[in-house]
């Protein structure tokens, strides 16, 4: 009996040591594993912070539209282990892949890691002129588009003649992650709802408004908000972006006293998500890293609202965020991008 027990114990020890060795090997592999994270431009600060904190991470930063265009066509290795971007870009990629008869790349969307409401930063003096024209609502995209089509520009709206035309700005919805979301919010504001379909894009009145708005959009190198902050309201009078960018930037800006931060209606948010490839691979390690404490801290430090994390300067809990993003569907946003291309080309 004792012999039997000794054999069993010896066997258990062998099995245990093998299991332990295997786990140790796994951890060693994990530690030496390179994790390829592609980040949307608006998340660069957070990604760089993570990269510095963990030597396994190899970060590539590029506009979400650039990543999306590549991933929509890739057949085989995607060249990344995860994509940190704003929703619904991964869904847009998979939609485009399905329409090209390619397999979807990503697992089902998970709850957002961080959120940020979409905002408008407007020259205060000009916002005051515009407000009475906004039919009792706060200054927003619908009203900006209408003002942009007013013959005579600011002078006709009651502003100073030397202000010229109304010059709103948003980033390219084709190239820029936030640009597509801001445009989605702008269009929702015109319709007054978010349950939009591609048929809505055929509304003639909408098309006139949309063409007027986009014809007035001021070109800007990089972020429209930076253009406003650097070059002033002579170039851009109102810039659409995220609170994550606007809050900290305004807090540090030499022009902060002449600019106003507005939360246009309907409230919409840019929601940060980590999209990982379906199936086996290093996505688990990447998820643990990005969705863990360090990732959450990095996002909060970069101005994003993260539950349980301290807010960055210029960012507060007000206004409160709704349960969803408040944006039209991924399919509609993709169709809107295509329409934007047509209108602006």
């Amino acid at each position: 009996m004792r012999r039997v027990l000794a054999v069993v114990a010896a066997a258990a020890m062998v099995v245990g040591s093998l299991a332990l060795r295997s786990r140790l090997d796994d951890r060693k592999d994990e530690r030496s594993q390179v994790l390829r994270l592609t980040c949307a431009t608006e998340l660069e600060a957070a990604c760089r912070q993570l990269e510095e904190a963990d030597g396994r991470l190899k970060v590539t930063v590029e506009p979400a539209g650039t990543t999306a265009s590549r991933l929509a066509e890739v057949d085989g290795e995607a060249g990344l282990d995860g994509w940190l971007t704003t929703g619904p870009w991964p869904e847009i990629v998979d939609l485009e892949r399905r329409s090209a008869a390619l397999e979807p790349l990503f697992t089902a969307p998970r709850p957002p890691l961080a959120r940020s409401p979409l905002v408008l930063v407007v020259a205060t003096e000009r916002a005051a002129v515009l407000a009475p024209r906004c039919a009792g609502t706060a200054v927003g995209w619908k009203c900006l588009g209408e003002a942009a089509s007013t013959a005579g520009g600011w002078a006709a709206l009651g502003g100073r003649p030397e202000w010229g035309n109304v010059k709103p700005a948003h980033a390219s919805p084709v190239a820029d992650g936030v640009g597509a979301l801001v445009l989605g919010q702008a269009v929702s504001s015109w319709f007054g709802r978010t349950d939009l379909s591609t048929a809505d894009l055929e509304d003639e009145e909408f098309q006139r408004w949309f063409a007027a708005l986009e014809g007035a959009v001021a070109p800007s190198a990089g972020s429209p908000l930076t253009t406003l902050l650097v070059a002033g309201p002579g170039v851009v009078d109102a810039a659409g972006t995220t609170e994550a960018e606007a809050g900290p930037s305004l807090a540090n800006s030499a022009r902060r006293n002449s600019l106003t931060l507005l939360y246009p209606s309907p409230m919409a948010t840019a929601d940060v998500m980590l999209a990982t490839a379906a199936g086996d691979g290093p996505s688990g390690s990447l998820s643990r890293l990005v969705e863990g404490g360090k990732g959450r801290e990095a996002l909060a430090a970069a101005g994003w609202r993260v539950d349980g994390q301290r807010r960055a300067p210029g960012v507060s809990d007000s206004p409160a965020l709704g349960p969803g993003s408040g944006l039209p569907s991924p399919g509609f946003l993709d169709a809107l991008r295509a329409r934007w291309r047509e209108v602006t080309s």
Binding site: P63, H170, G215, G222, T344
Partner: peptide
């Protein structure tokens, strides 16, 4: 570079 009208690529050279 950022010229012409409308929103442009985020890669445009910055001032």
């Amino acid at each position: 570079v950022a010229t012409g009208s409308g929103a442009v690529s985020p890669n445009a050279a910055k001032p």
